[in-house]
Design a protein around this nucleic acid. Structure first.
Lengths: 221, 221
DNA sequence: TCACTAATGTACGAACCAGTACGTTAGCTA
DNA sequence: TAGCTAACGTACTGGTTCGTACATTAGTGA
């Protein structure tokens, strides 16, 4: 999420459209993730940038479009990460576990992304709906899941007849909740779902859960 | 979430502290759930009440305390519902499935509550932390889960050595995500997780998942 | 029935905040 | 090197929004 390389030497102000734009996006990502859409302050974003508020309107048009741009880049990052998924050489069970673990890791490592998605849901995905870049592109992870499921179901290893989107929802829900609801869950039950000492435990729990579901004996249906 | 009984007959304005307070809470719940904490407007809440903004400050002190009161009542509602859980007469497997289904149903029926919890997480559970009523009270559901797990583990039916809080997190994550992330998930994958035609499917999926996890053969650990 | 207080209403202020009018400069190109 | 334009800065505005000072009335207890 830090795409701006600091030139270290201060003083001389060189014009650099790309850098300015990227810096605004970086700071805006933090600010929106911190305070939500309505809680975020355009002036605050500008202040934490080496440029001024004027530039935000110059490059993005307004607060709304800025938030959309932030979302677009955040989803872009996750898609890139998913594209590096390489589990085709594993057997279906190991592949699914690996995929679940990578999802687990990615969510944990990008809490700002989780917050942005939560915020966007409060706004009923209004910005995604209005974005050309964020149409129903799906995600590379879905294709991977599809392939693994097909192999596992053919071989009879997987007894469940889930489809890829549903399995993706199952895996995501656990990973997402652990980060998104960390605070209320911690406050109410006195347990920090992101406690480092419990990390391996929850990571294994997720894998066990998904594998158990996929391989359980089913009553005839 | 509608605790105010409408007296039908309008005109004569009778003073009724309890009613006024409750009406403010009702409207505030809707408004906060709709727009988030910062997006919510005190004037808007007042306008949709039969009283004035002055009363909000009279009874609650301010926007922040009003939101806390809204959260306290929302959590109260869910606790009451959980207290009616009655699954002790069922065998452990059926009991867990029933519990999961009731959680599923409750989340689906209270989207405003889900939104409030999402919003409170964006604010890092700040209001829960500052509330006396919302300290670590846990939830009645936890006790039920504890009892079922104990029975199931004693009898050897359940192979997993989860504890109650973890299992609660597993069940909640699926139910919560389905509601909280409905919009982004729908926009990105073209599937409405709350589609009525899919309801039974997802309800069964949750139960299957939890039971499979609890009863799966484990490699020695 | 009289006074006292809880409950309610009106009108306003002060700060905040998204957005803009207008002016300036860096750097490229002809 | 003159001029042109993309990139940038300053200062302001108009509307919004939380909160409150002040006035009023309903109901209750002495």
């Amino acid at each position: 999420m830090t795409s701006v390389e600091e030139p270290a030497r201060s003083g001389e102000r060189i014009r650099d459209a790309a850098r300015t734009r990227a810096e605004i996006l970086d700071v805006a990502t933090q600010e929106f993730a911190r305070a939500g859409y309505d809680g975020a302050r355009v002036d605050e974003i500008a202040a934490r940038t080496r440029t001024t508020k004027r530039m935000i309107y110059y490059y993005f048009g307004g607060k709304e479009q800025l938030f959309t741009a932030v979302l677009e880049r955040a989803y872009g990052v996750i898609r890139e990460a998913e594209q590096e998924l390489d589990v085709d050489h594993l057997d279906p069970v190991a592949a699914i576990r690996r995929l679940a673990e990578l999802t687990f890791d990615h969510h944990e490592q990008h809490p700002d992304f989780i917050r942005l998605v939560s915020i966007e849901n409060i706004h009923e995905a209004h910005h995604i709906a209005g974005s050309e870049k964020l149409g129903k592109i799906g995600s590379p992870a879905l294709d991977v899941i599809r392939r693994i499921l097909a192999t596992g179901q053919e071989s009879g290893l997987f007894t469940a007849d889930v489809d890829a989107v549903d399995l993706h929802a199952m895996i995501s829900s656990f990973c997402f909740f652990r980060v998104s609801n960390r605070h209320t869950f911690g406050a109410l039950f006195g347990r920090d779902l992101l406690d480092g000492a419990q990390r391996a435990h929850y990571r294994a729990m997720l894998g066990d859960m998904v594998i158990a579901y996929l391989t359980a004996e089913r009553s005839a249906d």
